[in-house]
Design a protein around this nucleic acid. Structure first.
Lengths: 209, 209
DNA sequence: CTGAAAATCCCCCTTTCGGGTTATAGCTTT
DNA sequence: AAAGCTATAACCCGAAAGGGGGATTTTCAG
């Protein structure tokens, strides 16, 4: 089996070199190239594609997130593993949405980093402990609203794009009652239109579609 | 440090017993209780809470997914780790939405299973390789629509719940033009109302909010 | 340069929504 | 028993949305 080839995108020369040393010093891994900025990485990576890219987020100029977007646009199959100090909610989800296939924080011990690279190459998505929990929790319902069961039911239909009339027919009640429920939903969610209600329902996972 | 206490919910007695043996045979772990069905588990678990529950999905009667929902309703802080043969998309996401904090397929080797229990207890969210990738990919944009840049921009505003007039003001164009763009969006997305368009945009991740 | 696609604007008309107000039956909670 | 909430239903009215035309300008690739 050939070595797993790795590229590193990291602005701190010290970290960059020590990562390269670690990878090249381990049988089965080769560090093919290193880049000090997102721009250089984009230019260089299209030439010779590694199996896995280790990408820092905080870079001078273009951020790692932007770099991931650009790279995945050009090379959808490229595996990019984020390796960074930052681990706040927003950055994590932006990175994953941009196309990262894993997310490691920088205090990951060498052995685990190598294991993560291996796992990425095997079709996995390695994440640091805390990150994994963040990701999984994002699926769970967060917001607690005081919508009644009936109101939630009506909201669910709204989220399918139905009109008052269609909802009335589905629930076997009059359109006027649907109107009443929706008025209450708007008051409780503090919105003033169907699209706003639907947006809020999706963002706060108020419905189970 | 006290042992990590584990409960097993699994209908196959053979698997159940061998898991219990594995856990009890490992220093640092204690299998506190085992249940052959979701119903029994719900009744028994509220009495003595373990640190981690290993939950099968395919159970006689109530499914593991339903059991997770009920248990998390009563005990939001309980860590439930799914351990099952099934790994199709739908089941994985249903389990995570229900409140599972990790997802392992049943061919997980004993050492890794124990490691996963440990990781769960440390606030992690262990997942089998393939599952983790599934989860991460769910954040990435899937659908490719032929919306123009301007249309996507208008759709984004729709997804914030804005009216035609507000969108017109935001983009410094006339309300008529907004109407025209929205007509085209409806045609391309094959929808007929704002709420339907918003729902589709969220479900298919057509916008970056 | 030319033609297609995109973006802009305007008019018609009908339906749907959103807000206000009122009312009754059923159920829970105090 | 009274108070409070929920679900049901109705009415009015103005504003917003949606569907059908048509037209002009900008932009960009061939």
């Amino acid at each position: 089996m050939p070595d797993i080839t790795v590229s590193i995108v990291e602005d701190d020369p010290e970290i960059r070199e020590s990562l390269a040393l670690l990878i090249n010093g381990t049988p089965g891994f080769t560090c093919e190239s290193t880049y000090g900025s997102a721009e250089k990485a984009i230019k260089g990576l299209v030439e010779d594609l590694p199996d896995v890219v280790l990408m820092d987020i905080q870079l001078p100029g273009m951020t790692g997130i932007e770099a991931i977007k650009v790279l995945k646009e050009k090379e959808p199959d490229l595996d990019i593993l984020v390796l960074t100090i930052q681990s706040d909610n927003k950055v994590v989800f932006e990175a994953l949405c941009a196309g990262a296939c894993g997310y490691l924080v920088k205090d990951t011990p060498p052995a685990q980093l190598l294991e993560a690279i291996q796992e990425t190459h095997n079709g996995g998505a390695p994440m640091s402990t805390r990150i994994a929990r963040l990701v999984v929790e994002s699926f769970q319902i967060t917001a607690q609203t005081d919508l009644t069961a009936r109101e939630t039911e009506v909201l669910t239909h709204l989220c399918k794009g139905k009109s008052y009339k269609m909802i009335a027919d589905s629930l076997f009640i009059s359109e006027e009652t649907v109107r009443r429920h929706i008025k209450n939903i708007y008051r409780k969610l503090e919105v003033h239109s169907k699209s706003e209600a639907v947006a809020k329902a999706f963002k706060e996972k108020l419905v189970n579609l």
